Computed example of a mutant assay.
Amino acid sequence: MSVPVPKGEATPSILIVDGDIISRHAIADYLRHCGYAVVEAATTDEAMKALGEPSLGVDVILCDASATGSQSAFGLSTWVRNNRPELEVRLAGSLEGILNTAADLCEHGPHLLRPYEPQAIVDYIKQLRASRDRASR
């Protein structure tokens, strides 16, 4: 069941980075149905290009931990942390992938274990916003 963004609240924008078009479209459609603005990228290169667009305001990046491009998902996460610290990055991956990259995931923060329910992303975004609201008071 999707839980929409409450009326009157600013709508966060989410950048989804996933080479699997079916997974990417499915989560993007779910998030749009919940009222979020969504930008899709198939590779980390497309994500970097999108992040370079001045008119594109992104709040959260959901990136498949096995995303490909000129840099890995972890490279993208590092770049965001160093250059756009106001953005939150959430990596998603399979148990096998997470076990193979445990050190990287520890360094790069929270992650989602695949398969996950799309509502887990919405819940994460709500927790993030609540945390930011508390910090700004």
Rank of each mutant, 00 (worst) to 15 (best):
D29R: 10
V58Q: 02
I61Q: 00
L15K: 07
D29K: 15
I16G: 02
T78R: 12
L128G: 03
L62E: 07
L99A: 14
C106N: 07
G93T: 10
S55M: 12
D29S: 14
G19V: 06
A67W: 04
I98C: 11
I121W: 03
S72A: 03
V39S: 11
C63V: 08
A41Y: 00
L62R: 12
S2Y: 14
P85F: 08
E107H: 08
S23V: 12
T78S: 14
S13Y: 15
D29P: 12
R114D: 06
L91Q: 02
P115F: 08
G52D: 06
V80H: 06
R134N: 05
K126I: 05
A130S: 15
V89W: 01
Q119N: 09
P115M: 08
R137I: 09
L105H: 14
V80R: 01
C106S: 13
N83D: 06
C106G: 13
H25G: 11
P115G: 01
A120R: 10
G97R: 05
A10I: 06
S55T: 13
I21S: 07
T11I: 13
V39M: 12
I61R: 12
N100I: 07
P4E: 05
M1L: 14
A50C: 11
R81W: 00
L51E: 02
V89H: 02
I27C: 07
P85C: 02
V122N: 03
D45L: 10
E86K: 12
S55I: 15
K49I: 11
S77E: 04
S13K: 04
D59G: 05
T101Q: 13
P6I: 03
R32P: 03
A41K: 04
S72I: 03
I121Y: 00
G109K: 10
I98A: 14
T43L: 00
A26D: 14
E88P: 12
I121H: 02
L76G: 04
N82I: 08
L62K: 05
G35H: 09
Q119R: 15
C34L: 02
A130N: 10
P110T: 15
A28D: 05
S70V: 10
T101H: 09
R24K: 02
V3K: 09
G19K: 06
A41L: 00
V17C: 01
F74E: 04
G75D: 04
L112V: 04
S131V: 13
R24F: 08
P118V: 06
S77K: 02
Y30P: 02
A73K: 01
V122K: 01
S70T: 09
I27P: 03
R84N: 08
K126G: 01
L51I: 01
L105G: 00
T11W: 12
I16P: 00
G93E: 03
A42G: 13
E86S: 15
V80C: 00
N83Y: 03
L95D: 15
I61K: 03
A135F: 08
V5N: 11
E107A: 04
A28E: 04
A102G: 04
L51Y: 05
D20A: 14
I98N: 13
R134V: 10
V58A: 03
A92P: 02
L76P: 00
C34N: 09
K7P: 11
D64M: 09
E53N: 09
H33D: 15
Y36M: 09
S13C: 14
V60Q: 00
H108Q: 09
Y116D: 08
D64V: 03
N82D: 11
W79H: 06
R81L: 08
E53Y: 11
D64I: 09
